[in-house]
Design a protein around this nucleic acid. Structure first.
Lengths: 241, 241
DNA sequence: GAGTGGTCTAGACCACCAA
DNA sequence: TGGTGGTCTAGACCACTCT
């Protein structure tokens, strides 16, 4: 681990334990240089990591201030998560299961060709699965993978974690994701599998996941009952404006 | 403007005009150092700006690649916008108006005290206003401001842009925002002012806006009819993993 | 092994803020 | 005016990828 990351870790701890109390100034960069025995550029890089998290903010001439803890200490992540549900809720006593409803290979229609940047002759896996959290239906996921990228997908992968398969066995690296969130009316699938009423709103997250090299790797629509989930995001202002 | 920003601007243009074509490698950092006559650290900082936008990505030993344009060139921003609607849709032929439905000063309940980090004796402005886009009702906004921060707010500000007032006249600087997005059932306000049916889903964006120093400046719930808006976000993978 | 990007140094100058 | 953080340099070493 790089020096600047080590130092950032130490500083982050000091802020979390309020060794550096909220609404006070951090030691100035020169003092930190002396304490850690590194150059000032390195200290700056450490501080910039914390600033990205919204824990501190610096003003030229005025110093670096610790932001009130409640700003950044909130429950976050769901809207910036695509590791998959398996990773997201594990750890606590949650039990996650998947029921595969549809698993087939098909040729993409025009919509899917555009979303996945593929041609009409490049087949895609189409998957619909119901994610079950602690024995209760939770998310209905409609997913499409380009078959030439996510090769040799089978039902076993679907039941465990598709993302683990892609990351570990295929060795592909995720580069980013584009998401769009809408409210929808419940359709027949939602009513059947999520036990939604016809009048229940559905929260739909449409997402395209990209590999590091920019190729789309997945298009999906995850549908939730309105009362079981929300999506959150923390935005930190960068630079001037 | 700093050197590294100037250089980033030039490089960004070259990518957008495909002078550097997608899916090819950028000139290496040493070449860029020679071209721009700056040190390598400066070039690195420029490149890191583009990487944050998802336009390029670098791998040690392998070079810096231009990502396929379609990844980052999408319609984005709504979910990472809190400049206010006035700024967001202007420019094109849109006409934005506001109708103030409620504007009053009240004492915060426990919920609002927690959201705005204030005491029960610190009054808040409560505002409900209907945002009208091209003569059609668009968003119903329920907003609360701490009165000791957003002082001397009046109906004129509400009709134009509250954010302009806060930024320009009060001189306060935004630091970030925390958002949560849900699907909701329509309530009587939505039915009356957004012309929603009782069975229409409503997309609700709950948000807390913070000042640079971490003090909450606004709590709001913006409600849309499900068929008029969605929220999008682009996430770029940073660092390893 | 040659070439790449990531990190780090020890200085320097400057813009900005506060007293 | 003195102290702060922002930028920048000209090197250096290292980890990694490619072939």
């Amino acid at each position: 681990m790089a020096k600047y990351q080590e130092i950032a870790k130490v500083l982050r701890e000091r802020i979390e334990t309020e060794f550096y109390p909220p609404n006070t100034l951090m030691p100035n960069q020169v003092d930190l240089v002396e304490e850690f025995g590194v150059s000032r550029m390195t200290i700056k890089k450490s501080l910039s990591l914390l600033a990205l998290d919204g824990m501190i903010y610096s003003r030229r001439g005025a110093g670096t201030k610790i932001v009130n803890r409640k700003l950044w200490d909130r429950e976050t992540s769901p809207a910036t998560e695509y590791q998959g549900l398996t990773h997201h809720v594990r750890g606590t006593d949650n039990k996650v299961e998947s029921e595969s409803l549809i698993f087939e290979l098909e040729f993409p229609d025009e919509f899917m060709q555009e979303k996945l940047l593929i041609g009409p002759d490049q087949p895609v896996f189409k998957i619909i699965r119901l994610r079950i959290l602690n024995d209760k239906p939770f998310i209905l996921e409609h997913t499409w993978f380009p078959a030439h990228i996510v090769v040799k997908l089978n039902e076993d992968h679907i039941k465990s974690s598709i993302y683990d398969y892609i990351k570990n066995e295929l060795g592909l690296k995720f580069g980013g994701a584009f998401r769009s969130i809408q409210a929808r009316k419940a359709d027949s699938w939602d009513m059947k599998y999520l036990n939604a009423e016809a009048t229940d709103p559905i929260l739909e997250v449409e997402q395209i996941i990209y590999l590091k090299d920019g190729r789309p790797m997945e298009y999906s629509r995850a549908r939730n009952r309105f009362d079981v989930r929300s999506y959150t995001a923390l935005q930190v202002q960068k630079e001037e404006q």
